[in-house]
Design a protein around this nucleic acid. Structure first.
Length: 588
RNA sequence: GCGCCGUUGGUCCAGUGGUAGGACAUUGGCUUCCCAAGCCAAUAGCCCGGGUUCAAUUCCCGGACGGCGCACCA
């Protein structure tokens, strides 16, 4: 890490000024849980609102809000029950901790040790004489600790219905797909977003709100027809992307390359144009909320790093004190999740895609006469019927003779063709069922809040006095405008109080402060990133003008009170900056 | 989960085997008034449990929490 330890200052300011603090301090705190304070909560909420504006409203996507507790079958289907279940073994000699399942996979032919129960893992380690990779000590007889990263609970009384706190918000979208597709009138593509909490019982939470046990994700799942749907890149083609591709990461002198979105998708390292589409939107969005683009990049996952379902995966990363932390993941998840939920639930997770022209197809079908098969074959009858249907599709020629032979569980059965009711049918098909593919941009909100604070942290000097301020965009700053009376006398206090109430009534996040010297009040607002301070002074009482002071430059301009609301709204909601208000009289 | 280091007002630190001091912040008063001025006063603290001791914030053990390293982070 670099000597520039802004992180320590951020954590200090965060606690002192109410951005975030470790939770449950009265009970000595619990690792990995944080509470957002009076400044942090609005900052976070504003970030979420801006995300919603960009990724839901402006993209025409839908938003849902699913439960955080989900029943076990959801995670059997998603694979989390297996893959979030780590088996750790600690060497009794050197005390190094290892993944027990990985040791077995390395030392034996077993490829999927992860799914075995703990006792079998212990036996396998003993039977194969597996030793500690670090010091070589025999690990036989050493206990394997079962550790599931999901928080478990019981739904209702007793333990008959186990549930888990969701380890990612997205499963709440996937499981409701059969209904969500109805809301989208069965038309692809459509996107469903969710902002919410997710939970992981991390072994070792670290670095304040960067790695916690409860965190907020903003995720979008775009469901597409992989053959038909293409993103419209026309507005984004020229967006420049800082890309750190897998080959660049593996090269000795590899560095990130900047290229336009069009280049990156056409001949560059971004495989999926959908992923590219969201990289483009995300880059502009991160810039909008205050991430320093000089400390920002998209990093491609290395082959071994990718989840089993993802064909192309990129992370958005920000640099914090010399370390790169993950802000978001962009993955092409193919049809993996919907297919799994379809298989496990038996529900329909497909979409019906109509052909341009209805097709006439000939198809071999069977309609087995179960009243014959049943008495004849007993419990095997159902399987035989299923196999007949499969065979008809696979190899219609098998039905040419008097009898047809099918194999079920290693047994051969001869079935008369007329009992199978084999037919070649001419049918009109107007379309087919497809399982949509999923493109998933997934954002970590807490880490982004942290990055915004970190990248916005400034120290400078005003008239020889040190100043700390946060350069937060007016769109996300907890307070947009603070109102001060220069002094609390001669009616300035009353005037300022009313002015603040007026601003609040039209929707501004405001603060009021009449305590101490004016300079001190400016500094207080600087430290929580309030972009504008309005001061009521002697002249206000005469001509109804106030001074507006901009945080970064500390420049002040005198603005008539009846133009104040419009000016502040422009400053907050548009690209116009304080410099664009130079027609107003500069103070001093 | 392992190892090293740490934990003293809201924040940042100093210090001690006989229960503590500063700076900043906060609140009130006086003064001043457009960038942390000054003066007076007030509020507020030794992470928790056990042990050693006449006496533990201080020494020892354990725990919680934090930082860093290892491992983990589909």
């Amino acid at each position: 890490m670099r000597p520039d330890m802004t992180s320590e200052k951020i954590v200090e300011v965060a606690k002192r000024r109410g951005f975030f603090l470790q939770s449950f301090g009265a009970y000595s705190g619990v690792s990995g849980f944080y509470t957002y304070g009076p400044t942090g909560a609005p900052l976070k909420r504003n970030v979420e609102d801006v995300w919603r504006d960009r990724f839901v409203v402006r993209e025409g996507n839908q938003e849902i809000d699913a439960p955080t507790v989900m029943p076990e079958p959801v995670f059997e289907a998603s694979g989390h029950l297996d893959t979030f279940d780590d088996m750790l073994i600690a060497c009794s000699e050197c005390e190094e901790s290892h993944r027990a399942d990985h040791l077995i996979e390395d030392e034996t032919d077993l490829a999927d040790a992860e799914s075995l129960p703990t006792e079998e893992i212990e036996d396998l380690i003993a039977d194969n004489g597996i030793g500690c990779p670090n010091c070589g000590a025999d690990l036989a007889g050493v206990a394997v600790d079962d550790f599931n990263l999901m928080f478990g609970t019981n739904i209702g009384p007793g333990s008959a219905s186990p549930g888990y706190l969701r380890p990612e918000t997205v499963q709440g979208i996937f499981v409701e797909f059969p209904q969500l597709k109805e809301y989208a009138r069965n038309q692809l593509p459509f996107g469903v977003a969710q902002i919410g909490r997710a939970y992981r019982n991390e072994i070792s939470p670290r670095r304040s709100i960067i790695r916690t046990r409860e965190f907020t994700q903003a995720e979008l799942d775009l469901f597409i027809d992989p053959e038909e749907d293409r993103p419209d890149l026309s507005d984004l083609a020229d967006v420049r992307l800082p890309l750190y591709s897998a080959p660049d990461q593996q090269a000795d002198d590899g560095d990130l390359e900047e290229m336009t979105l069009a280049e990156a998708v056409e001949e560059g390292p971004v495989d999926s144009e959908w992923v590219g589409y969201y990289l483009g939107i995300a880059k502009e969005w991160y810039e909008r909320v205050g991430v320093d683009m000089d400390r920002f990049r998209f990093r491609q996952h290395l082959a071994g790093e990718r989840a089993h379902y993802a064909s192309d995966c990129w992370d958005a990363e920000a640099e914090i004190d010399g370390d790169w932390i993950e802000l978001a993941g962009f993955s092409y998840r193919s049809d993996y999740d919907l297919r799994k939920h379809g298989e496990h639930s038996g529900e329909d997770f497909t979409i019906f895609r109509e052909y341009d022209e209805p097709k006439s197809v000939t198809r071999a079908t069977v309609d087995p006469d179960m009243s014959t098969l049943g008495p004849e074959y007993g419990s095997a009858a159902a399987d035989i019927a299923a196999e007949l249907a499969a065979l008809a599709e696979r190899d219609p020629d098998a039905f040419e003779g008097e009898d047809v032979t099918v194999e079920v569980d290693g047994e051969s059965y001869e079935v008369p063709v007329d009992v199978a009711n084999f037919r070649i049918e001419e049918r009109t098909e107007s379309g087919e069922h497809i399982t949509p593919h999923v493109v998933e941009p997934s954002f970590g909100v807490d880490r982004l809040v942290y990055t915004i604070l970190h990248h916005g942290y400034r120290e400078d000097e005003i008239d020889g006095e040190k100043r700390v301020y946060l350069e937060l965009d007016p769109e996300v700053a907890p307070t947009t405008v603070a109102v001060f009376p220069l002094m609390d006398r001669e009616g300035m206090g009353e005037y300022a109080t009313e002015l603040e109430a007026d601003l609040r009534s039209v929707g501004f996040a405001t603060a009021y402060d009449d305590s101490g010297a004016i300079g001190r009040r400016y500094r207080r607002q600087d430290e929580v990133g309030t972009p504008f301070c309005v001061t009521v002074d002697h002249r206000t009482l005469e001509d109804d003008t106030v001074t507006v002071r901009e945080r970064d430059s500390t420049e002040q301009r005198r603005i008539p009170v009846d133009e104040l609301t419009d000016a502040l709204e422009e400053l907050r909601d548009t690209d116009r900056s304080f410099e664009d208000f130079s027609s107003y009289e500069l103070v001093e």
